[in-house]
Nucleic acid binder design. Structure first.
Lengths: 222, 222
DNA sequence: GTATTGCTTAATGCATACGTTAATTGAGTC
DNA sequence: GACTCAATTAACGTATGCATTAAGCAATAC
């Protein structure tokens, strides 16, 4: 299938996403549509469309005459988001276990785990975070529920900035991969209950750690 | 706080929602932006904005040169959506129980239950469905997680048409209120575990019944 | 009869123009 | 100096025009 050339609105959407994730549009800052249009070299129309999409994803807010506001994350938001992620990802883990995927279908998970190990040994936290993200995306994909896939992606995007911030404050995630392996194991042997329980505990733990971290560092909004 | 006059895009959004829910724009049908614009008496711009919003909510799909397509629901979609609803609503129930709401905060739930009873006795299924909806919305609201609130609303909207169809095919929901009462009870006495378990069972059961109903009636897409 | 090519049509995606109106500034008053 | 109110500004929401280009169709070749 040929994928038509991306429209200006598409380019605006990913450009804005990048600007937000890279912190060039800081949390809490306001930006006029016309300013963004100038910055991205296009008219307000595709910018507006991109803004609407990102607003629907919970990344920004459109406030008339104030411009688009990059939504900051309070610890409360973190808790909310991780609660959803914890629940839906564990469900996906259970479903993945029940689906009886052949071993080669689980190769993506195994690869992500290996990459995390490698990154940890190399002390490369950014690479670790990328592989960790990949593990969770792949896990949810194996769950086979398209709604969960897109909701999880949305929630992950909402906490992306915060995760980036905590990445270098948190202790090295040396035990995290034990959890990942245990989940993969449970899925491989078709133990849905264990997969769900293990992943739930894993996410719960990470969630508590991260929100505690933000609160300790008095980061009211990230 | 004054809520400014609704914009044309706002009106278009709710108008389109109504048209979809009332079946005037049937599932699977295509509609050109210009056609909708004429129909609602405005230009394409606000129509487009409304379409983008509804697309983000999973109600329609924008296909270049084909117009907006009203997304039909296959039994598989029903399962996916109810899976999400089951999990997130049960979580909300648990959280509501843990929140220790004062009795008067649970009045909305109780009222919805009473209304369902009344509607059942009167044989008014539409009124029952409305009250049932209200119960679930209120339950989720009491859970206190804004993300869950909006995700649940989104999922409910996606199955709204299908629920309307099954409403008159299903057996009268006479036992349903027993479940609701049990959940309310568990929340009132702060038993988070029971609330979660009971509501999970309730939604699971409803989900199985509805999807089975659609499949029995060979309704591939609603 | 089937496939290929070129043409026609028209829906979209984007740019642009403009009216409305919220926010701001400044003068004037107490 | 603090406050009120009017005038100004400019950002948004909407309408409109247009270039692009996909889809449909007809004509032609095989």
């Amino acid at each position: 299938m040929a994928l038509g050339a991306p429209t200006s609105a598409d380019r605006a959407t990913s450009a804005l996403r990048d600007l937000i994730f890279d912190g060039e549009l800081p949390a809490g800052s306001d930006h006029l549509e016309s300013e963004l249009a100038r910055r991205l070299g296009m008219s307000r129309t595709p910018i507006r469309e991109a803004a609407l999409r990102l607003a629907a994803q919970g990344l920004i807010e459109l406030r008339p005459r104030k411009g688009v506001r990059i939504l900051p994350l309070a610890p409360r938001d973190m808790r909310e988001i991780y609660e959803v992620l914890t629940e839906l990802e564990s469900l996906a883990a259970a479903r993945a276990a029940r689906a009886g995927h052949p071993p080669q279908a689980l190769a993506g998970l195994a690869a992500a785990i290996d990459d995390m190990d490698r990154a940890l040994n190399a002390g490369d936290r950014l690479a670790w975070a990328e592989a960790d993200d990949r593990f969770h995306v792949e896990l949810v994909r194996l769950g086979g529920n398209a709604r969960i896939v897109s909701i999880a992606a949305m929630m992950s995007d909402q906490v992306r900035r915060a995760r980036r911030v905590t990445l270098f404050m948190r202790p090295p995630p040396v035990r995290s991969n034990d959890d990942h392996r245990a989940v993969l194991d449970a899925i491989a042997r078709g133990d849905a209950d264990a997969a769900q329980r293990l992943h739930h505990a894993h996410r719960s733990h990470a969630s508590k750690m991260l929100t505690a971290l933000l609160e300790t560092h008095r980061l009211k909004r990230v």
